[in-house]
Design a protein around this nucleic acid. Structure first.
Lengths: 123, 123
DNA sequence: CGGGATCCTTCTTGATACTG
DNA sequence: CAGTATCAAGAAGGATCCCG
């Protein structure tokens, strides 16, 4: 979603929705958050978990999320560089959101041909 | 988020997250869904609820959401054109997601300077 | 290993003007 | 009222190559 990120203007009620959306938007942010929920990961570990991510994109997304205070970046001054990424408190607070996104996705995966399956008791 | 929308490729576990994200992504989709949750709305009614939306954009977003099976478009063959938009079952199923996004946004509005306020009981 | 710096292409959005 | 059509700008994402 182009536009300056965090524009912050006069928004109607649903503004909060957009604001949140913009933080987790970005081609890989959602997945990255998802994986970091399980724990700290190194750059290449994250990379391996995302199919076809270029270093540039991964770095970008991580940087933006860092700027948004969602993740923390820890650099180890070792010979083979080592950088670990983890969620900040703010980032962890997004768990219910990510969870909601995943739950919905799991039950409506692309197939919007039946629009709302039987949905027995499976809440 | 560019890329063909619904690319559907080999995704890692967090794929579902991305898939859902891509449906509600788009500058206005989140807010539109949010407003439609309250009931059917006409084109200009939606437009008035979103600040600074151009017809083009609104039409675009609505069309995409319609294609994604999230909203229904009902055209009345009247003299002054009348078109109503409402959520489909699939669209309504997104409520928990939109809700989660809104709740988070309400409590973390841009100010990621204190990362998780006191949060008394004030939900 | 974990990037930084460039260059390029595509998608998205905005601004306008016109129409049934 | 509810769009459609065009034009143009800008941002997001991709491909490459270089570096400590």
């Amino acid at each position: 979603m182009p536009r300056t990120r965090h524009h912050r203007g006069a928004c109607s009620p649903g503004c909060a929705v957009e604001a949140t959306l913009r933080l987790i938007d970005g081609k890989w942010k959602g997945v990255i958050l998802y994986h970091l929920m399980e724990g700290t990961l190194r750059f290449n570990e994250i990379r391996r978990r995302l199919t076809n991510v270029t270093q540039r994109m991964l770095t970008n997304q991580l940087r933006e999320m860092e700027a948004d205070g969602l993740i923390a970046r820890k650099v180890y001054a070792e010979v083979p560089p080592k950088v670990e990424y983890s969620l900040t408190a703010r980032g962890r607070s997004l768990e219910p959101v990510i969870h909601a996104l995943k739950v919905w996705g799991d039950r409506h995966v692309e197939l919007h041909d039946d629009a709302a399956p039987t949905v027995r008791s499976a809440a």
